[in-house]
């Protein structure tokens, strides 16, 4: 069974960013949102409209294909893993992610691949994101 993250109730987001704080805190033991593998941001000029992007767990990831150093490798079931020693901090991977789900660690100069642990889901007060099983068509349900 392959679990993927899905934005199921975008319109219920209140923009509290508890998901991003949870990702940084639970996986890195750090405060802030700077190490979060997903993101929420306000659309500029549209009061109260939030854009939430989570990794699609692509089976043939554009980010890995764009990496000139072979630092991002595809994981079985989809998604990518980072070999930090190989990363040359060029940022081609995040540019290749059209949905802007792959986040960039500005402090370390590396991408932040999602591991689909679901901490962001657990700390969302409104059920905006869900961890679901991938269906054969590739979509979560």
């Amino acid at each position: 069974m392959v679990r993927i993250l899905k934005v199921v109730n975008r319109d219920r987001c209140i923009g509290c960013l508890s998901c991003m704080y949870a990702c940084t805190r639970k996986l890195r033991g750090l405060g802030g949102t700077g190490k979060s593998a997903m993101r929420v941001r306000a659309y500029s000029g549209a009061e109260g409209a939030f854009s939430i992007r989570v990794c699609s767990r692509c089976v043939r990831p554009d980010c890995a294909a764009a990496c000139p150093a072979g630092a991002l490798t595809t994981v079985e079931g989809g998604g990518v893993r980072l070999d930090r020693d190989k990363c040359i901090s060029c940022g081609a991977c995040v540019k290749a992610c059209t949905i802007a789900a792959l986040q960039w660690d500005e402090e370390d100069g590396v991408p932040i691949p999602c591991i689909f642990c679901g901490q962001c889901v657990d700390f969302c007060p409104n059920g905006v994101i869900a961890l679901v099983e991938r269906t054969p068509s590739g979509e979560g349900e």
Partner: peptide, 12 residues
């Protein structure tokens, strides 16, 4: 039409 939150406030 909506409730929104300050950053890091799950109460909103």
């Amino acid at each position: 039409v909506q409730h929104i939150a300050c950053a890091h406030c799950p109460c909103g």
